[in-house]
């Protein structure tokens, strides 16, 4: 009993008793400063709190199934633990450790003698060569050739020399328009004042050339140029859904439903707010797009279903240098 008490007392004295270790007598490097027991207490308390927060983390982790806001408590415990221990170290650095401000010389600006030696070594190393230029040229040439050889496999990454596919779309004359769940669109489904998304039947919907927006406009609203006059079917027009600016999907349809009905109806891309006019063939009304929206010619079959009457009147999606390769194939 008394031994246990002695042990406790001696531990307490060792832990809490004040005193500084005696260093051998010698000239000091780090100047001697008085102790700061108050700040020591702050640092020790911060470390203790940090440890408590750290212990909370595995507890929350283990109980995660039973407590709400698991993520918040996990973050709180781990974050606080880091911050508290970090604060303890900052306190240590600022108040408990001697922070001498000392000065010393900046490193030399340059080393002229070493520079000279380096130059001499390099110059003398090639002294034995009698046709130095030829040798260096061969060395450079071989290096370059090897470099080209090593870079060649990069070509396998993609179809570098075949950019034609960028222009292709799945749309053909007579191809049915279907919705996201492959149900065919009928002309009577399309109402004014809203817009619909359609795809070519059986095609890959992710293909940039696939998706189109359908809108119905009052027939007196159209101001189509002559070559596009036959593109709408029964007041319904279809445009590529992919913005010609940066390739985002056009998912906004601006249609003022009551007075004032200005500005006029427009298709808008939410990425950079390129705005296109569905009444005149998809011209750019506002925003950065530099090219009009490609228009898809439509027809209505005998059962009222919407079908394509050909391909778009221009290349789909964002432009590139070679967009001029496009050859229009308008509906006959």
């Amino acid at each position: 009993m008394s031994r246990a008490r002695d042990l406790l007392v001696s531990t307490a004295v060792l832990l809490f008793g004040r005193g500084r270790p005696r260093l051998p007598e010698r000239e000091r490097i780090i100047p001697e400063k008085p102790g700061r027991p108050g700040w020591e207490l702050v640092a020790v308390s911060l470390l203790g709190l940090g440890a408590l927060a750290a212990i909370a983390f595995p507890l929350v982790y283990g109980l995660a199934k039973h407590i709400p806001h698991e993520t918040q408590f996990l973050g709180l415990s781990l974050g606080l633990s880091f911050v508290l221990i970090g604060a303890a170290l900052v306190v240590t650095g600022r108040h408990l450790i001697v922070t001498e401000e000392i000065e010393e010389d900046y490193p030399a600006e340059e080393h002229p003698e070493e520079q000279e030696t380096l130059v001499q070594v390099v110059e003398e190393s090639g002294d034995r060569l009698t046709r130095k230029r030829l040798f260096l040229l061969s060395l450079g040439g071989a290096g370059a050739a090897l470099g080209v050889a090593l870079l060649t496999p990069v070509v396998s990454l993609g179809p570098v020399f075949r950019v034609g596919p960028l222009l292709g779309t799945p749309w053909r004359r007579g191809r049915r328009l279907v919705d996201e769940d492959d149900r065919p669109w009928r002309a009577s489904d399309i109402e004014e004042g809203t817009f619909y998304t359609a795809f070519p039947e059986g095609a890959d919907k992710e293909d940039l050339g696939s998706s189109v927006v359908l809108v119905r406009l009052p027939k007196d609203r159209f101001q189509l140029p002559a070559q596009l006059a036959r593109y709408p079917a029964d007041g319904i027009v279809a445009y590529s859904k992919i913005c010609t600016h940066a390739g985002c999907a056009i998912s906004l349809y601006r249609t003022p439903m009551f007075e004032p009905t200005d500005p006029k109806p427009a298709l808008v891309c939410p990425c950079h707010y390129s705005t296109f006019d569905p009444a005149d063939g998809g011209s750019v009304l506002f925003g950065p797009a530099g090219r009009k929206l490609p228009m898809l010619p439509l027809s209505i079959d005998s059962s009222g279903g919407l079908r394509a009457a050909g391909n778009f009147d221009g290349p789909v999606g964002p432009s590139w240098w070679g967009v001029r390769l496009w050859k229009a194939n308008p509906p006959s």
Binding site: T71, Q72, F73, L74, G75, L76, L78, G79, L80, S81, F82, V83, L84, I85, G86
Partner: peptide, 9 residues
């Protein structure tokens, strides 16, 4: 620590 606090809260 601040990053974990942000990440959690």
């Amino acid at each position: 620590g601040v990053l974990f606090l942000l990440g959690g809260l």
